[in-house]
Structures are given as C-alpha cells and as structure tokens.
Design a protein around this nucleic acid. Structure first.
Lengths: 353, 353
DNA sequence: CTGAAAGCGCTTACAG
DNA sequence: CTGAAAGCGCTTACAG
C-alpha cells in the first residue's frame, strides 16, 4: 500500500533508474521506442515513487491543456445538472477536464465567460447557446448543442421526432382537442417540438397553440393561463414543450378542480427530476444526454486535432448526421412508467416541416 | 479596434520594446519595481500586440494553477445550477477557474472524481458532500459546504434559523396542526431545518413528522403520502424540508381535492425555479448562495495560501463563525411574494437545539 | 530602476 | 534501443 508522499517528477524517476528523462517520457507515452523490459521497470518505478505527471509542463511543451470549457448561457436551465454531468463524464473518458463558465443574463457576460475560458487555455469549448444567440468565430474550436435547425449546431436531440412521438401517443389515446403550450417562438428547440407535435397529431386532431411569452407573467397564483376555460371548451390534452410549463399546467388544472388525468392529461419534455414525483406524474420525453455529450466531446476533440494541422480549416466541429433519439416516458393513464408506445415507422417529417 | 491575431508572448513584447522579459514581468505584476513611464509603455504594448499570459508557464514556475475543483456528489441535487453558478462567479472574482467533477452514486466515484481534479493540479477543492459521507484528508486544501452541524463544515446556510423563521411564520398564520415532511434522518441539513421548525412553532402548536425515507417509493400516482387523511385529521399546514417534497405534497393535496391554500398551506425550502411557477406558488426559504460561495472561495483561498507556507498547518479551511441567513419568501395566502414576515429577535436556538 | 540567468517538468527532433 | 540538448513562457532571486 503506497503511502502518499511528495509526488515524484519524471526527472527523479529517471535518476533513480539511471536512465534519461527522455527515455522515461518515451516509455510512458508508449510510442514503442523503448524496450519492453525497460518500460516495465519504468512503469514499476512510476508506481513505487508515486509519479504524478505535471500537466503544466506538458502544456507548456505541447500547447494543449487537456481541458475543455463548458458554457451554458442559461444556467437557470433545469437541465443543467444532467448536461454538466454528461459532459464531464464523456470528457473524463476522453481524457479531458471540464472548466465551467457561467454567463447568466447578458450576451456580454457570455462573451466574458468565453474570454475567461480562453485565458485559462482551454483546448476547445462546448456551448449550449441561449435562445436566439448565434455563436461567432472565437478562435478556438467549438461544439454547439442545440437543435438540428440551429445553424452551426453540432449535435442535439431529435426534438422534432420527439414531438412526433408525443403527438402520436396523444392521438393513440383518443384525444381530439389538444392544447400545445410553448413559451418562445424564437427557440429552435421549441419550434422543432411544436412542429413535431403537430405532425404527430395528424390532420384529424384539433389543436391550438398557447404562447406564454413572458414566464414571469404566469408566476404567482394571480395570473392564470386560462386552462379551465379550455377544459370547458373541450380540450382534453395539454402538451407543453417543456416540463416546467407542464408543471404549471398541471397545478393550474388541479387548482381549478380539473381531475388529471381523468378529465385532462398533461405532458412535457425533458423528464426533469420532479416529473415523476408530482401526482399524477407527467408523461414526458427523455433526452439521451449521455449520447449527446459523447458526440459533442468527440466532435470537439476532432476539431481540436484539426485545428493543429496547418491549414486544417476552421476549427468548427462538424455536424452530426442526425439528431439523437428521445425516449417517450408514459406516466399518466396508468400511474406507472410503461414501455414507450410503439409507433409505426414512417417519416412524417419531410412533408410537414 | 484590435483585430485578433496570434497572441503575443511576454518575450515578444519585451523584444518589441527593447527591454528584458524580467522587466515586463515585473511591470505587469505591478510590484512597483519598474518606473511608471516604462510600466505605461509596457501596458500599452500589451494591448497593441495582444498579449495573453501563459497560465501553463506561470503554473510551471509558481506551482499554482489558479484553478479550484468543485465536487457535488449528488449531482441530481436541484440546487446544483445555482451553486455552480455562485461558485463560478465568486471564483472568477477571486481569479480562479472552476473545474467540475461528477461523482454520481458511489463513494468510489467521489474519490475518483477528486483524484482527477488533483491530477489536473487544482489548487484546492470545494465539496458539497453527499448525505452522511465524511470527507477525509486528501492532501489538498478543501472547503466544505453543508450544514453548521456537519463536522468539518466550512460555511453553510443557517438552516436551523431558516426553520425557525418558517415555524414562526406558520404560527403567525394561526395554524395549530402542522405536518413536517422530511426525507432522511441522516441529513444534517434536514435535521437542522426540522429542529428549527419545531422551535419556531413553539410549544403550543401540534406537529407531527412524516419521514419519506425512500423517495422512489412515492413516485408515480399509485403511492401516496396519505395527506388527505391528515387534512381530515385537522392538519392545515404542510411544511416540507425541501421544495421537491413540498411539490409532491402540493400536487397530492390538489389531486385529492384539497384546496390550497384555503384548506391547507404548503411550504418548502430552497426556492427552486418552479416554486413560484406552480399554482398556488410555494412559500419557501431562499438560501443566499452568493454569500456562501464567496465565503467558501475566500476560506479556500486562505487555506491554499497557508498550505504553501512551511508548517502552515493542515490545509483545511477554517469554519465560518456563523451560518448565512436564509430569506423567507412568502407566496401563499396572498398569491404574491411579499416582504418577509418580521419576527421578534430572540434566540430560540440555545434552548431547543 | 533594469537586466542576465537559472529553472519549473516535460517532449521532441536529432544523434549515437 | 537510448541519451544529450534545446525549448515551451514565465518568475524569482541576484547583480548591477
């Protein structure tokens, strides 16, 4: 059991073995320039003496820090924990550390945050842009996670298909009057989801879209979305584009005496932690953030490599061919999460987008 | 307007001005060893040539990276975004970058995460420990954010006082039968809040504590907390130790036909983003995370400095003298957030703790 | 007030 | 297969 002591340097282990530090370096980097026996001895010494490589020295020499930055402009985004976790996991697997940058509010803050990351020497940056903001050239490799319809997007969930899944699910349940609830028409993600929902519901189901432009406005018990009137009007399903809106809808319906899901069902997107804790739980779509994070890190990693070859072209991560599938999590109408509804495979996408 | 070009090095700006790099370094570090005029010229050149300091070189020389690690073992903690944001903000102000480490689940993961941070050379680590886990010596300065009653805690909200505030608020509203809802008796934070609540309610108000040991068990519409029975039993206030439990209580009550807040009021802790969006909104206590983050970063920064002076003692951040105050956010019974209720200043703490 | 020099710990051509 | 040497960009005593 090795006791922790002062970590040894490469020069020290070289001295201890009577070889040169160049040899130690070569052995450890495993480029096959050192005999198997010597390599084994060096490996052993590494353990015995408690060698800890100096990232700083390595960086100074190679120009790479092995750290990527993560910018989530809208840090109040409830998805933040999951995204951050997924990115950190994927980055660690690829040998990168993750430096976070906060940039709440203003675009200026976002620029400043990116600046701080660059000063710290990150090799590249992953950005989840705030609605409507475009990320310009920043002289550092970048990967963007947003929506397939965002220009420059690198990878994202297939929000459109998610909408289709939900639309078909609701149609399958027999709803014929559905209220779609969105918040911003400037959000590509929301637009994709709404578009998919409409396509999934098909032409025979009546739907209407409620746009809650100002989230602040619906805070408090005073202001209502007017959902009770919608129920009276025959709407039986309320499909929000994200769980927070669904939660608002659920509580408002309940407060006004509507029985959920008997009289009206409520659904959202993203499967936030509380989606399954509320009563009744909310039917929603879960993003596969692990896959998204992996692809983002991979694309960024490629861009970083490219940016080092002279004339390697702009260091922008290539776009993934297709969006990552979302998973339908059905909770209402049974009170238990059940298997995703199997829907006939057909591309409703081309014709309605 | 300076166009972005290849960032200049310190040696380059020295050459451009015909001075030595040592002088440039001294001028920039502002230790007053360089004449005012020369310093001004150097500053200017810095801007003109687009000087970007090399953190790697600096680190190699000084042994400090200027980066601290952030470990949030329970990353599903809904407070994560706010905490991460607050820490990043405070760290940036103090000149530090923040490297995140995920350690979901196992304690082993937590150890591995800390190891990754250390390998990247962080100067210190801020930890929000998972319930019950104790953080041992790790050979790197550490600051812990948890609860005043956690051994080794560096700084935290005054959860006990928060409980007292809520207890008094409920008492002032005239409730005489209150159900306290907690989840784990192993959590110091929850225990503090419960203790404070009881003290704040005083001896004349009837209360009972419901312990929801297994959060999974209350998921779904099937399993209930049995709140309807409590209402029938005369309980008029449901005080949860965190908002997620309050949300569960609210939706369960509403689903079962209880009018909130007319028949029963619901309160939580932490003021999560949706607390004000549900209908009716939830009365809760907001943590002053900005202050907590500042103190944590400051304490850690001190510990880092100490750890460098020989025999500077163990590199553990000192405990803040007192917990950071929480703010009562009253939302129910008016439908609007109103000013915190003013309570008589008296220390109910000593006698009941 | 300013400069020459050493060195932090690695990696990378280049010789042997 | 192994080693000597240079150099990444800074900072820090130490002289002048």
């Amino acid at each position: 059991m090795s006791v922790s002591r002062t970590p040894a340097t490469m020069t020290e282990i070289a001295a201890a073995l009577g070889v040169s530090s160049a040899t130690v370096s070569n052995a450890l980097s495993g480029k096959g320039r050192v005999s198997a026996e010597l390599t084994a001895k060096i490996r052993q010494a590494t353990v015995d003496l408690g060698y800890v490589p100096s990232q700083a020295a390595r960086t100074l020499r190679t120009g790479r820090t092995g750290v990527i930055g993560l910018v989530l402009p809208d840090i109040s985004n409830p998805l933040f924990p999951q995204i951050a976790q997924a990115i950190e996991q994927a980055a660690a697997a690829a040998g990168y550390g993750v430096l976070i940058a906060d940039s709440r509010g203003e675009i200026a803050q976002q620029t400043a945050a990116i600046g701080r990351l660059i000063e710290r020497g990150v090799d590249g940056i992953i950005i989840v842009p705030r609605r409507g903001s475009r990320v310009g050239e920043i002289g550092t490799p970048v990967a963007i996670i947003d929506s397939p319809s965002t220009p420059g997007n690198t990878v994202s969930s297939d929000h459109w298909d998610g909408g289709v899944q939900m639309g078909r699910h609701l149609a399958g349940l027999g709803h014929c009057k559905v209220l779609l609830i969105a918040q911003s028409s400037a959000s590509n993600v929301q637009n994709d989801r709404i578009g998919g929902l409409k396509a999934g519901l098909g032409k025979n189901i009546c739907h209407e879209t409620l746009l809650v432009e100002n989230l602040e406005a619906i805070k408090g018990a005073g202001c209502a979305l007017g959902l009770a009137a919608k129920v009276a009007d025959g709407f039986t399903a309320f499909a929000a584009v994200y769980d927070l809106l669904a939660l608002r809808a659920l509580t408002e319906l309940q407060r006004d005496g509507t029985e959920v899901p008997r009289q009206a069902s409520v659904s959202g997107f993203d499967d936030l932690v509380w989606s399954s804790v509320v009563t009744p739980p909310i039917t929603t779509l879960r993003q596969d953030l692990a896959t998204i994070a992996e692809r983002a890190v991979e694309a960024l990693s490629d861009a970083i490599t490219d940016s080092e070859t002279p004339f390697g072209g702009p260091a922008v991560a290539k776009q993934s061919v297709e969006g990552v599938a979302m998973t339908l999590v059905v909770r209402q109408s049974t009170g238990q999460a059940m298997e995703p509804v199997v829907v006939p495979v057909a591309d409703t996408r081309e014709d309605s987008r």
